[in-house]
């Protein structure tokens, strides 16, 4: 009897800790979003109150949509993220297949060379990257960002995907070879479909850092027409710092796309992390 009671008590304590921490984690987001729907007076008078008929206002969102080009920023972020992810997955899978499938001189060395970038952040090379982009005329283009993010994502992608590709059955590939499939067809038709779960993991790992990055957009592509959503909201908030309605609305609008992505992919993301892909 005593044991049962102490087990219940432990469970209650566990839930209490977790609920407390969940509140701490969600509180700032909650405060920002509810206040973005209130008029200026209510924001200051009652910051923790929910908006009601009297205090409800969309003035902040009107300012944001009038003053900032958020649709363009969103589109830029979308292009950069989707193209970078596609390239990371395609190039990464190809290289991983070469490393996992074929025995050739320097295979291990090549693997180590590609793995270097897992630990060394690409930001260290920023000065030379900027110089290179200036001399090739790629500054203030989305291409510059795409190239940088592709290079940044490849090491981990190759590492994770080649571990998975080693697990693909040799019999299947050899059967393909006997049927006269070329090595390219074996890769695209037989192997790629089988490693789709690992590809999804790699995609989700790369998606959020690329979408949220501030450093490279700030340095390589600060021009108005190529601003990403992260940089765009940073600059917008900096300019409108005294207009609380606009700042809170801009923050809420920047939270929205990531939250949508998270709701869609959270299962994949959490499964990816917990499956030990990073170990």
């Amino acid at each position: 009897m005593n044991k049962v009671r102490s087990a219940t008590r432990t469970t209650i304590a566990a839930h209490a800790v977790l609920i407390t921490y969940t509140l701490i984690a969600l509180f700032p987001v909650f405060v920002i979003v509810i206040n973005s729907f209130k008029d200026r007076r209510a924001i200051f008078r009652d910051p923790l109150g929910l908006p009601n008929e009297e205090t409800f206002s969309l003035i902040g969102y009107e300012t944001v949509l009038k003053q900032g080009d958020f649709f363009l920023y969103f589109q830029n972020s979308m292009i950069v993220t989707v193209v970078s992810l596609t390239l990371i997955l395609l190039f990464g899978a190809m290289a991983a297949f070469a490393l996992a499938e074929y025995r050739f001189k320097g295979n291990r060395l090549m693997g180590l060379y590609l793995a270097l970038g897992i630990m060394i952040p690409i930001r260290i090379g920023t000065v030379a990257i900027l110089e290179m982009m200036v001399s090739t005329g790629l500054v203030n283009t989305l291409t510059a960002l795409i190239l940088v993010y592709t290079a940044q994502g490849l090491p981990l992608a190759v590492f994770i995907l080649s571990e998975f590709m080693k697990g693909v059955s040799d019999d299947l590939k050899n059967a393909g070879r006997i049927d006269g499939l070329s090595e390219y067809k074996i890769f695209f038709r037989l192997v790629l479909p089988l490693v789709r779960p690992a590809m999804a993991t790699v995609a989700v790992f790369n998606m959020i850092p690329i979408w949220n990055d501030l450093w490279f957009p700030l340095i390589l592509a600060p021009a108005e027409e190529v601003k990403t959503l992260t940089l765009g909201s940073q600059v917008f908030i900096g300019q409108f710092v005294t207009d609380w309605n606009a700042v809170l609305s801009a923050l809420s609008m920047a939270i929205l796309p990531v939250m949508v992505l998270y709701v869609i992919f959270s299962r994949q993301l959490i499964r990816g992390i917990t499956s030990g892909a990073v170990k």
């Binding site: 390239l87 190809m94 590609l114 060394i120 690409i122 030379a128 190239l147």
Partner: peptide
């Protein structure tokens, strides 16, 4: 199979580093 990844990685990451 190796070329695209190695080229992008070398040109945009290792060389600038």
């Amino acid at each position: 199979f190796l070329a695209p990844a190695v080229l992008v990685y070398t040109a945009v990451m290792i060389y600038p580093l």
